[in-house]
Simulated scan of single mutants.
Amino acid sequence: MRIGELSERTGASVRSLRYYEQQGLMTSERTPSGQRTFHADAVERVRLIQLLLAAGLSSPRILEMMPCIHSGTTTRAQRRMLEGERLRIEERIAELESARERLSRVIRIARERDEERAPAA
Rank of each mutant, 00 (worst) to 15 (best):
A42K: 14
L96S: 09
S71G: 03
S28I: 05
I93Y: 04
T74C: 05
E95Q: 12
T75Q: 02
D41L: 08
L87Q: 12
M66Y: 06
Q78K: 02
Q35K: 07
R76I: 07
S33F: 05
S104M: 13
E91K: 13
A99C: 15
R79F: 01
V46R: 10
R30L: 05
G24C: 06
I69C: 11
E97Q: 14
A77M: 01
E91Y: 07
R80N: 08
S28F: 02
E91M: 13
R76D: 12
P60E: 10
R102M: 15
S59G: 06
I89V: 09
R76F: 08
I69T: 14
F38C: 08
S28K: 04
G24A: 02
Q35H: 13
S58D: 05
R30H: 09
L53A: 11
V46N: 09
R92N: 10
R47T: 12
L53T: 14
A99L: 10
R47Y: 07
T75I: 02
A42F: 05
S58Q: 14
E90H: 07
G72S: 04
R47F: 06
M26T: 09
L48S: 08
T75E: 01
A40N: 14
L53P: 05
V43F: 03
L103G: 06
T37C: 08
G34E: 11
Q35A: 10
A94T: 07
Q22C: 09
A54M: 10
S59R: 06
I62C: 00
L103S: 15
A55I: 01
Q35E: 14
S33T: 09
M81C: 03
E83K: 08
G56W: 01
H70C: 07
L63A: 14
G56F: 02
E101A: 15
E85R: 00
Q78T: 04
E90D: 13
E85S: 01
E95F: 04
R80L: 11
E90W: 01
L87P: 00
Q23N: 08
L96I: 13
P60L: 12
E90R: 05
R88G: 00
R45Y: 04
T73M: 03
E83D: 12
I62S: 00
S28L: 05
E91H: 11
A94I: 03
R45L: 15
R36K: 05
E64L: 05
Q50H: 12
M26R: 09
E97G: 07
G56H: 07
H70L: 07
L52A: 14
I69L: 12
R45E: 08
S71K: 06
R30P: 03
P67W: 12
I93E: 06
Q78V: 02
L87W: 01
L52S: 02
I49W: 02
S104D: 15
L57N: 00
E97M: 09
T75S: 11
R92K: 15
M66P: 05
R102I: 13
S104R: 15
A99G: 09
E44H: 13
T31K: 03
L25S: 04
Q50V: 08
L63D: 11
T75R: 02
G72I: 11
L87E: 08
R100A: 11
A77T: 06
M65T: 05
R61L: 14
E90M: 05
R86E: 00
G34K: 03
V46I: 10
G72M: 03
L25E: 04
R45P: 03
A42S: 15
S28C: 11
E95I: 11
R100F: 03
R30D: 01
E90K: 01
S104F: 10
